[in-house]
Design a protein around this nucleic acid. Structure first.
Lengths: 340, 340
DNA sequence: CTGTCAAGTGGTATCGGTACCATGAACGTG
DNA sequence: CACGTTCATGGTACCGATACCACTTGACAG
């Protein structure tokens, strides 16, 4: 009766206000908004009209107390490279497609920060977590296990058994394949540039794959590995270090395109021809890699697809599928360009 | 009495379970966790022990029904360039520092998507919104106004009056300054490359600033503007288009470093010397700009700082400060490098 | 000894949806 | 025509933490 006039300075809209105005019970409004096919067409129309007119937006917080929240929590490393950004985009798009929200926390490289981030996420009782943390500490794993929330890890899929399910590639295989590829093109002395591993399995496996390939190839070249920060400046530095350590080095395989880019720029600065004076390969197939001149030979990984796939699998897990311990391999591809 | 043994297959932990085990009331546990100074040291210690032992994580969803949620919603454009990524990092860090969570939605370039995204965010009754949408449709603004949620816009600060408060720079001034800077270095024919404006005021103001500078300088050069997709490929294309349109063009000012990078690579491909054959300038001072050889002259904007500052101001607004209509100018800086 | 006050703690109502079960109407079937 | 079944809708009881107010206790001033 007084529901019309008191809008100007009355408080926030609730479902019951809409219900009153539409002449139905609150629960019917709820159904109209979340499962419209359970409401008769006329009622539905009437309710939606009121919702539209009043600009009502249901309170997800309240709704998430009974039903589990349509939220997926995720921890991502700092978005320094566009690979991660693609992945976030993939997760974001997939979430949107399913009507979920993405709760994003950025990790750094410390275990405490990771633990705190996980607690913050779990506090929201998300449907699941997608983790791509660097550390993956034991404490963190235990916390998640206790909470009983499904987890999809975007990670190295070789060797380790995931908590529930992992999406990723074998970084070992990829690095092995690239090293072999370079050897196949006739390069003899093959350097390797890594970023600080910090307990990150993906990075470690790349190095292991490289080493295995060198061993299998029977190349005797001493230590041609170096570790630098994950910036293009790091790549430039790596070039200097390695060429100084062994002037006859023929190719440098960088564990990230960002490093490869930096190395290419350093060559330009020195006036060195690529790949004649020295060849360079990267990892990730960032946009950069194809656009740099000369274009960079690299390993393509479908990061966007990994993000989407992670969300899809997570929702399956949450819906009851066990799939425990499985790994989903999204594969990789060697992209041969001009730089090596 | 039976609270100890039934843990194995009992349901989730609630605050009252902790309370029972610690021999206090639930509300005391609440206080112990959110305002520890209101609880006596002994009680606090006992409660924290139980919390620790059980691995209890309070349910934020429930807590957010009475008190407003410690959540900030944000809409960001696709993370195509690292500038946006820096900004997200800034917001994320600032949120973490204040104990807030970041609810992230990625926009695209359509008004409907934006409206949907805003509804999704508002459904969580966030403390506030940080918006950096491309469209900023009228419908979206109205929705936010109705919800009565404070908003910080990361945007162009010239001309437009923000809903509550805007953080950003004057893109007009920045583009004007760069154009003048280039003219000051002796360049006569100055081209301009923009990405599709799509109603985005920041991009528009850059173009307007450029045009104003050209007019003020009294340069009569015809149309040396072109619009290309925001990719490095777009930058390469722009170089081709402009040099074909006017072979005597001397410098190209790109409204994004990504474009400038593409243009530089295209020059390399053609064997053109930079800046002798043609000079290039960018916008944003992405990591790329300083690392590319030759290093790119550009406009530095502190994106990370903008993100942090947006969160800080938003929390002030939420705490009651009005600050309506104000704009916070974080400023810019012309970074003179080798490319122009 | 009484009154005032602060600190520490608890009881209760409440935030706003939705799961669960009940109800009544309309329809078809034997 | 009695009965089962489906469809549309409503009533009620929560979900789990916290705001609000009340209460107890001890310290201290007058």
């Amino acid at each position: 009766m007084s529901s019309r006039q008191n809008s100007p300075e009355r408080k926030k809209l609730r479902m019951r206000d809409i219900a009153a105005q539409a002449g139905v019970a609150p629960i019917t409004v709820s159904r109209a908004l979340s499962s419209p096919d359970k409401v008769s067409p006329e009622t539905l129309k009437k309710i939606l009209e009121v919702v539209q007119k009043e600009g009502f937006i249901p309170n997800n917080v309240a709704g998430s107390m009974r039903a589990t929240a349509k939220v997926i929590g995720t921890i991502v490393p700092p978005l320094i490279n566009s690979g991660i950004a693609d992945q976030v985009q993939g997760m974001s798009d997939a979430c949107a497609a399913h009507g979920y929200q993405l709760l994003l926390v950025q990790g750094d490289f410390s275990a405490e920060a990771e633990d705190k981030a996980i607690m913050a996420l779990l506090g929201w009782r998300p449907k699941g977590l997608i983790i791509q943390a660097f550390v993956q500490s034991k404490a963190a794993r235990k916390r998640i296990a206790t909470a009983g929330v499904p987890v999809v890890e975007i990670s190295e899929i070789r060797g380790r058994t995931p908590m529930n399910l992992a999406v990723g590639i074998s970084n070992f295989d990829a690095a092995y394949a690239m090293t072999q590829h370079l050897a196949g093109k006739g390069y003899k002395r093959i350097g390797f540039v890594s970023t600080p591993i910090h307990g990150n399995d993906r990075l470690r496996q790349r190095r292991v794959g490289y080493r295995k390939a060198i061993a299998d190839l029977g190349i005797d070249q001493g230590d041609l590995e170096v570790e630098v920060p994950i910036t293009s400046k790091g790549g430039a530095a790596a070039l200097s270090i390695l060429t100084e350590r062994d002037p006859s080095i023929e190719v440098i395989f960088c564990s990230s395109d960002l490093l490869a880019f930096g190395a290419v720029q350093e060559c330009r600065r020195r006036g060195w021809a690529i790949p004649d004076r020295i060849a360079i390969a990267g990892f990730g197939d960032m946009d950069l890699a194809s656009q740099t001149y000369p274009a960079i030979t690299t390993v393509r990984v479908d990061r966007y697809g990994m993000g989407r796939s992670a969300v899809d699998h997570l929702l399956s897990l949450a819906a009851g599928e066990t799939g425990s311990g499985k790994s989903v391999d999204v594969g990789f591809e060697i992209i041969d360009r001009e730089s090596a």
